[in-house]
């Protein structure tokens, strides 16, 4: 099924960039000569989405747009941008949709908060439930009497 989607993405990419046969994602001519900068560019590329694809990062994508974005990322890094500045530059042009890792902001609070809240709530519930079960009420005097009669009857 993923393959089908992939094919659709590929088809979309083909339609958008007429006559282009899929190349490999990162091409040698895009790469920066400085290996440290290139490594930073690769890390950033994995956090940016190819806008015409289905959930693919520009590092994985064959589409021309992804190629343009990869070149843009490297261009920003070459100009001395920090990672944050480079990302901000691209988000300013392409919108938040381009980020594969959504920002930590109020709108995404439910997204980032879910695992922590659920884990805490579940953990507290477990502990509380266990306490409640462990602290079962002591026997009433009638129950004690009944127990005594049963125990004495056994002798």
């Amino acid at each position: 099924m993923r393959q089908a989607l992939q094919a659709i993405c590929l088809a979309a990419a083909l339609v958008l960039s007429v006559g282009v046969v899929p190349a490999l994602a990162v091409r040698p001519d895009e790469m920066l000569s400085n290996p440290a900068l290139e490594a930073r560019a690769r890390v950033l590329s994995r956090e940016l989405r190819c806008l015409v694809c289905q959930n693919e990062s520009i590092d994985d994508s064959n589409a021309d747009l992804a190629h343009d974005l990869r070149v843009l990322v490297r261009d920003r890094i070459k100009r001395g941008d920090t990672d944050q500045q480079a990302l901000a530059y691209i988000v300013a042009r392409y919108g938040e949709f381009v980020l594969l890792k959504p920002r930590f902001d109020l709108r995404n609070a439910a997204l980032w908060g879910t695992p922590i809240v659920l884990l805490l709530a579940g953990g507290l519930f477990m502990l509380f439930g266990a306490r409640r079960r462990a602290a079962s009420p002591p026997l009433s005097s009638e129950e004690k009497k009944e127990l005594d009669t049963i125990l004495s009857g056994r002798d």
Binding site: N55, E96, F97, L99, P102, R107, L111, L119
Partner: peptide, 20 residues
Amino acid sequence: LSKDRISVGAPFFELTFVPL
């Protein structure tokens, strides 16, 4: 809800799923 579009991709899942 807001007509905005955001993406949730591998970096999000790696940051949340792995610690779990």
